[in-house]
């Protein structure tokens, strides 16, 4: 499109690109290559002996029930974060879409958690769920439920899911709201004239039209739950009780920096990179499709 409108300099563009390319090479491509290389090595923690072992690190990993536990934990965690965050956000967006009075006030009051760091969100909910004096266990106690996330793995998982989803609601809300407002009013009006109730209109017209947004958000939320919730786990459960909240990213950190198992940690990094690349490709397929549409 721009072929008539380009500068003919041959050297200048490389200067313009240099800062970005140098940082990309030094801090992205090089470490990624290192991870790949290290994943084929077994090295003792002090670096005295290194042995090239082909896929041994990967085989060891895939035969390790701890690793599979971590995979399961990550999938459960991500699915719950995505579902909880998206369902609540969709509900709020559907309500906010048609409100005339106070619409911008509601929006303001719903979007600010976007600015809160995941680790901060985790600490807030960790206090509220504190078994000895937290307000939520106190209320649950009135119903005869004894809450203790230090021993009960399901409850520990619930806290980290709620904290992670809470922070993400505002993001989902804004996208759902934008998606809802892009739906032509005439469609809704036509259905209303035909006598469709508001609920029927939502499920049969609005919801299908919203599915691209929902799909986009699903991918974004899963990426978020996979990679950005390290702080949530690290500040609260430390992967426990047992290994019930040890997500893949937390395990990479723990095995690499605490356990000093460099080869194993690198192999886990490589698997995570493959997951990220898959998710990115899925996301881009979607973007392309939308552009054609």
């Amino acid at each position: 499109m721009h072929d008539n409108a380009v500068f003919s300099h041959k050297v200048l563009p490389f200067f313009l690109l240099a800062p970005q390319l140098i940082i990309t090479l030094v801090f992205f491509i090089w470490p990624a290559g290192q991870a790949l290389y290290q994943s084929f090595l077994i090295e003792d923690a002090f670096g005295f002996s290194v042995e090239f072992v082909w896929f041994e690190n990967f085989i060891y990993l895939l035969e390790d029930p701890e690793y599979w536990n971590s995979v399961r934990v990550t999938f459960v965690f991500s699915a719950m974060v995505a579902l909880v965050g998206m369902i609540l956000a969709l509900l709020l967006a559907a309500m906010a879409d048609r409100v005339v009075k106070g619409a911008s006030a509601y929006k303001t009051l719903l979007i600010w958690p976007y600015a809160v760091a995941p680790v901060v969100a985790a600490v807030l909910w960790w206090l509220m769920f504190n078994p000895s004096m937290g307000v939520l266990p106190f209320w649950m106690d009135a119903f005869g439920y004894d809450w203790n996330h230090y021993v009960n793995s399901g409850e520990a998982m619930t806290v980290v899911v709620i904290a992670s989803a809470w922070k993400q609601i505002s993001y989902n809300f804004l996208f759902f709201l934008a998606g809802l407002q892009a739906i032509p009013r005439s469609l809704i009006e036509a259905a209303a004239i035909d006598g469709a109730s508001p609920f029927k209109r939502f499920w049969q017209i609005v919801f299908p039209l919203l599915s691209p947004t929902a799909f986009f958000l699903l991918v974004v939320n899963i990426v978020y739950a996979f990679f950005e919730t390290f702080g949530v786990i690290h500040a609260t459960t430390l992967g426990g009780p047992g290994s019930s909240t040890k997500t893949l990213v937390y395990k990479v950190y723990e095995d690499g920096f605490v356990g000093l198992d460099l080869g194993g940690s690198a192999a886990q990094s490589v698997i995570l990179m493959i997951i990220v690349i898959t998710l990115t490709v899925v996301q881009f397929r979607y973007v392309e499709k939308k552009v054609q549409y």
Binding site: H2, D3, A5, V6, F7, S8, H9, K10, L12, P13, F14, L16, L17, Q20, L21, T24, L25, F28, I29, W30, P31, A32, Q34, A35, Q38, V223, F227, E228, F230, V249, V252, Y253, G256, F257, L262, S265, A266, S269, L272, M273, V276, I277, T280
Partner: peptide
């Protein structure tokens, strides 16, 4: 705004960074 050799390659190199959040390659 420029046409130069390896333009596409540079673009893809930058694109790669999108795929690799710091969390997945922390140790290296």
């Amino acid at each position: 705004y420029f046409r130069f050799p390896f333009r596409k390659t540079c673009f893809w190199l930058i694109f790669l960074t999108l795929m690799l959040p710091v969390e997945v390659r922390i140790l290296p």
